[in-house]
Design a protein around this nucleic acid. Sequence first.
DNA 1: ATTTCATGAAAAAAACCACCTTAAAAGATA
DNA 2: TATCTTTTAAGGTGGTTTTTTTCATGAAAT
Lengths: 338, 338
Amino acid sequence: MKKTTLKDIAKALNVSVSTVSKALHDIPEISEETRILIQNYAKEKNYRPNYNALSLKNKRSKSIGVIIPNMLNYFYMQVLQGIEKEAASHGYRIMTTISNESYQKEVEIIDMLSTGSIDGFLLAISKETEENGEFSHFTDSVKFGFPIVMFDRVSEHVECDKIITDDLNASADAVSYLVKQGCKRIAFVSPLKSLSIGRLRFEGYKKGLEQNNLPLDPNLVINTNEPDYKQYDAMIRPLYEHKIDGIISTNESSALSAMKLAKEDGYKIPEDLAVISFANGILARNSHPRLTCVSQHGEIMGAVAAKKLIDKLEKRDDAKSFATEFIETDIVVRDSTR
Amino acid sequence: MKKTTLKDIAKALNVSVSTVSKALHDIPEISEETRILIQNYAKEKNYRPNYNALSLKNKRSKSIGVIIPNMLNYFYMQVLQGIEKEAASHGYRIMTTISNESYQKEVEIIDMLSTGSIDGFLLAISKETEENGEFSHFTDSVKFGFPIVMFDRVSEHVECDKIITDDLNASADAVSYLVKQGCKRIAFVSPLKSLSIGRLRFEGYKKGLEQNNLPLDPNLVINTNEPDYKQYDAMIRPLYEHKIDGIISTNESSALSAMKLAKEDGYKIPEDLAVISFANGILARNSHPRLTCVSQHGEIMGAVAAKKLIDKLEKRDDAKSFATEFIETDIVVRDSTR
DNA sequence: ATTTCATGAAAAAAACCACCTTAAAAGATA
DNA sequence: TATCTTTTAAGGTGGTTTTTTTCATGAAAT
């Protein structure tokens, strides 16, 4: 079976193509009689306009390109879900791609999608790109009329809208939260040193200590770039020789590693050691004890980012001015803190 | 800045549009000199043919529509990752959508994408659709020339290619594995009663018992439809009054619930109770004890499904004949079994 | 009362979007 | 003149939009 086109309808009803088009758009120059006739027939044949023809004519595809660094990440999946829902509710479809943390892949994706397939990008910068500081593929894309809204992992070197977690303050708040629990020697554990989020969370940690008149002890800081598990354990273990009573970790699995090692060293959680972690994913809900988290609201971040891009595409938002929006965090208290 | 079109190049070099097109396609009837000139200019201007124009002309978009019931599912994300990689390697892009387990959403998605946006579908059937047995949107789609390859959750009522886990035999194998560990009273715990995978795993459980000459004790079977956590705990708890020594669960969180309750009842894992679960996700790797799993190779499933669809689209595969392919499972041994 | 012509509605035709294909024409060479 | 190369022009993809054409009506003129 073949999809019905305007031409098919025109031929069947013995009218011209333009008459059909106008009738379906309720344009008044078509007589009531003809219009009803055409509309009924179109409905009967389940007519749907061809998307490619529309895109070609309108110079916009009502599609959004999404670049995710890594799909096996609960937070990004929440963001993606938020994007998909928001986009769908505005009649946009999304093309999902994975950069796999590779700069080269990012370049290829942008090149491949900048051909009328999409109207703009939603993306989180890959690790490699963030490390090598090469952002011209993004700025070029914007120059060629494909607006970008970055989420979570952003760069100050690209002029575009950005939606991020207020990592700095969230981190500082986490410190304050632990202090209220009575913690005095709070460690910071992060494998995200080279990412902007890693830096901000570390800054927030320092700010939090300062706000609470606690000293910054370098012995209590593990700030590194994704080591393998064994290395990581070896780095974390010495912490426990410093009588710590609180840990802030920038991701879930760090927190789990730290808790595992702490238990081996005889710490009781949360009595001797309170643990709070960024990223409120599946692990946090299912760990023993269940993790207290700085919850990042990925779905909201995705929805906000999508909305922002769509506003830009539909000119409800000034194309020349860019804003950075912060998504609030919550502390979800579970069993790893008192 | 504006994207370069064939017309732009033609005007700039003072030749006709078709000359440019032919030159870029290395068609021999264009002179060496002209060809080089045009190709260089095109490269310089970073010319890319417009996707919509191509799709319109060729009546194919080189895009695949993917319908996932739920994004916050590690297994489906592995599948999606496999799909994306395989598709990208063949020059296909994917449009990712979420049915959110809803029949209505599924219908809308198919309707929205069957407009030239995509050439075919990769999908896992939503729970609601599987329950109400209404599949005409799928069969219609196939009739209208949009082939479907189903993965994981499939239906025997739709004629199309299917890629599934060999759930029945995987489940039977899991029983045999536990029996080899010395288990004699093996329980089956599943919240997926109404899904085809749930049924098959239960069949496999029964087959496995039979193969090992063990009786089927209804007291050892919890087969239900997604209860809430508390209900579920209440259903599982009575198991431990029946002196079970093994558990097969059809999903990770069931296994974790069961292990939690078992520990509360004084069972030691894996000494008193061996636990094996379907779905080899993040939870399994991070639980205490770490879960032995029937690993499903989601990425392979995605890649195989994508390959199958692309073969069909490019007529390397007979459009009229449909096959069901099984993806092998492995048992990944961790600490919840001996 | 008949013809003429303006008016306006309704419908059809044509142009355009960017690209590809193919048939035809032009030009060069033998 | 015939043959071969190179270029041009036309037509098609499905839709929207602008321009043209058609046709009926009614008023004014004969």
